[in-house]
């Protein structure tokens, strides 16, 4: 049943990010993927540019690599709460709401982003992967910086 499979996929996705297993995050996508973080206003206006824009698996791995070795940001972690998906009639697309709290090294926990994942999926060798995950944040405002992927 698609609903259960998707819920399971999203749970694993959240766990990978929230437990700092970022190296496994690109594995949730096919190689010719599109991962983009945008906002509701940008999405509605049809603006193509995201604050993160990756259209190859290699770009996702580069992002993890950069976070690990190049970029400077304070230690932080996320807690994803991912809601139940609304599955498209083609069964291979979904719209799933999420909330992400950010926990900073000084102990501050704050709601960092809310929004919806616009997903397209593909099954290869019995494994479900994202062909597209557009992260549409409800707000266009981002506090300080966005380092870890949503």
């Amino acid at each position: 049943m698609m609903l259960l499979r998707l819920a399971e996929l999203n749970a694993a996705y959240a766990q990978a990010i929230d437990t700092d297993q970022l190296e496994s995050w690109p594995d949730f996508f096919v190689e010719d993927c599109l991962y983009k973080i945008t906002s509701a206003d940008n999405h509605k206006a049809g603006y193509a540019a995201g604050i993160v824009y990756a259209d190859t698996g290699a770009m996702l791995r580069d992002r993890v690599n950069a976070l690990r070795t190049a970029n400077i940001y304070e230690r932080q972690s996320y807690r994803h709460i991912i809601g139940l998906p609304v599955i498209g009639t083609d069964q291979m697309s979904a719209e799933t709401p999420f909330m992400v709290a950010r926990i900073m090294r000084d102990g501050k926990t704050a709601l960092f982003a809310t929004g919806v994942y616009l997903d397209k999926l593909r099954e290869t060798n019995g494994k479900l992967r994202f062909v597209q995950r557009i992260v549409v944040c409800d707000s266009s405002y981002f506090d300080t910086l966005l380092a870890i992927p949503l």
Binding site: A48, G50, L146
Partner: peptide
């Protein structure tokens, strides 16, 4: 679109100017 990954709140370069 690809090069814009360098700028903005999540930019490989500019995220550091954010903090």
């Amino acid at each position: 679109l690809r090069h814009l990954n360098l700028g903005g709140p999540a930019g490989f370069v500019s995220m550091e100017d954010g903090c």
